[in-house]
């Protein structure tokens, strides 16, 4: 990581860590919890959808897995309230392990076919959630025990939980960029057949990337379920969650560190504001789609890649003049 990169990340997380101590507004805390959740989700989606160019539409299935896993384990008691957070690694690793055969099979297909294959995963997960009554409570949903956190700062632990996951996802993204995993995934994105022909361990690295990606997604599902206190099939395995992570990554810039972060910071507040302003009807979704469409028309590769190219060009021009 460059010096500037470190300063940027330090500032970003420094501000976010101190933020809850300046404001305890529930409305604001709630918005940040969702924004940080989507930072984690979009950044984790970017690992496979961005770096490898495998546009998964099935990530919400793993989000739902994490949500239900957490809900089922902590239905009756959460002790002092910290156990569900401490349990997250188990959720993430389980999702990652389950994803290995799924990723291996699904990633035999490419591009649009892969998108369709993974979206069936989402509907399968939803069907399972609806029908495995004993485990999931079916359409009645599954409740989680309520922790005895101080009501004045009730959101704070969830805020820090999501912040930690955002840091984990961005850390993974950074690690991918600086390791041969990222190099291999970039090669796969450009030309997978050529990558095979120069001995890149295509299958292994794809499955590994997919597992890490959905593992983080599942952990976000766990914190989300705990925060909501109740898990229903249509919300835990929601196509809108998948679409959200994809849109944010595209908007901010695929295959960049900050793109998904920026995308989440634009679209989540926009969505919350619009759904507040436009009331209970679904018109906010139209406005949401409009923001996305306009940005993509003006900046087709997303915000970050377009800006960084401009800066790079300026620098080159300055060098040329000097």
């Amino acid at each position: 990581m460059t010096r500037n990169g470190l300063i940027r990340a330090g500032l970003f997380f420094g501000v976010l860590i101190t933020l809850p101590f300046f404001s305890t507004s529930q409305w604001l805390t709630n918005m940040f919890i969702f924004t940080l959740m989507y930072v984690a989700l979009a950044s984790s989606w970017n690992l496979i959808g961005g770096y490898a160019g495998y546009p998964s539409l099935g990530h919400a299935a793993f989000f739902g897995f994490g949500a239900y896993f957490t809900a089922i384990v902590f239905t009756d008691s959460v002790g002092y309230g910290w156990s569900p957070f401490l349990f997250l690694p188990v959720v993430g690793i389980s999702a990652a392990i389950i994803s290995i055969p799924i990723g291996y099979v699904a990633m035999k297909t490419r591009a649009d076919v892969f998108a369709i294959v993974t979206i069936t995963l989402l509907f399968m997960a939803q069907t399972l959630a609806f029908n495995m009554h004993k485990l999931t409570g079916g359409a009645q949903g599954k409740g989680i025990a309520v922790p005895s956190f101080d009501p004045a700062t009730f959101g704070r632990p969830f805020y820090f939980g999501m912040l930690a996951l955002a840091a984990l996802a961005m850390g993974a993204s950074m690690y991918f960029r600086q390791s041969k995993i990222g190099l291999s995934l970039s090669a796969i994105r450009s030309d997978e057949d050529k990558a095979l022909g120069v001995g890149v361990q295509v299958n292994r690295v794809k499955v590994l990337g997919f597992a890490i990606s959905v593992g983080i997604t599942a952990m976000a599902g766990g914190v989300w379920a705990y925060y909501e206190g109740f898990v229903y099939p249509q919300f835990a395995v929601d196509p809108l969650i998948t679409i959200g992570m994809v849109l944010m990554t595209f908007l901010g810039g695929r295959a960049t560190l900050w793109g998904p972060v920026l995308g989440a910071f634009i679209l989540v507040p926009a969505q919350q504001y619009l759904s507040y302003e436009l009331g209970a009807n679904q018109f906010y979704l139209l406005a949401y789609a409009a923001i996305f469409l306009i940005t993509m028309l003006v900046l087709p590769r997303g915000v970050i890649p377009t800006i960084s190219d401009k800066i790079w060009l300026k620098k080159k021009q300055r060098e040329a003049q000097a």
Partner: peptide, 26 residues
């Protein structure tokens, strides 16, 4: 070639590195 990779990275990706190197520096 891999258009998005640098010229040097095009050579590195083709050096048939092992499973463990995958986790190492780009």
């Amino acid at each position: 070639i891999f258009p998005e990779l640098t010229v040097l990275e095009n050579l590195v990706i083709s050096s048939s590195f092992g499973w463990k190197d995958l986790l190492g520096t780009r």
